[in-house]
């Protein structure tokens, strides 16, 4: 057992866990944050994507002990109270989910890609989104509405940026 300290969704957490504990198990079993899902055992489906220190990672492919001191955001920590994150809202608006199992990972990957492209000052068009979704598999939606939702959320977030720039 090793003591692990993390900040998860803004709250400090501390647990003694075996060294073999994957971040996904730590979140699901130790913290009971079951919104992070596990859909494969070869690090490919992306249902388990969370943010570690602001970057998307596959929580099934990271040891909790190796992340001591990190800030972790899961799907449960994305909304501001009752107010949905624009990516969550866009998924609802565009019918970008059916069974909902891949959805948390899709949303976390979607937010990550919008953040990265904004930071780099690059456009996130549909073709780019499809490439960026390489590591997220959905069996229900045929991706059409997921791509549309991420496009729309990117535009909304970009739009929300604009007034701030104008005010400067």
């Amino acid at each position: 057992m090793t003591n692990v300290n993390l900040t998860v969704n803004g709250k400090p957490v501390r647990r003694d866990v075996p060294d073999t504990t994957l971040l996904s198990d730590f979140l699901r079993e130790d913290l009971r944050l079951t919104g992070t899902h596990v859909g494969c055992d070869t690090s490919q489906c992306g249902a388990c994507v969370v943010h570690v220190n602001g970057k998307a990672v596959k929580s099934c492919t990271a040891l909790a002990v190796s992340l001591d001191g990190a800030e972790v955001t899961t799907i449960e920590g994305v909304a501001q109270g009752r107010e949905l994150h624009p990516m969550q809202a866009a998924f609802n608006d565009h019918h970008a989910l059916q069974c909902g199992f891949c959805t948390p990972g899709m949303i976390m990957s979607g937010i990550d890609m919008v953040n990265r492209y904004r930071a780099a000052g690059k456009d996130l068009d549909a073709e780019t989104i499809r490439h960026e979704l390489e590591g997220n598999i959905c069996r229900c939606t045929g991706y059409h509405n997921i791509v549309r939702a991420i496009e729309d959320a990117a535009a909304r977030i970009q739009g929300a940026d604009a007034p701030a720039h104008a005010a400067e």
Binding site: T34, G35, E76, A79, Q88, F91, N92, H95, P104, I107
Partner: peptide, 22 residues
């Protein structure tokens, strides 16, 4: 109509079998 069940799925509050612990 937008789906009413979506909210629990997009906020990570869906309840799947593996989420249950007795």
């Amino acid at each position: 109509v937008k789906r009413t069940e979506d909210r629990r799925f997009i906020t990570g509050k869906g309840k799947y079998t593996d989420d249950i612990r007795m």
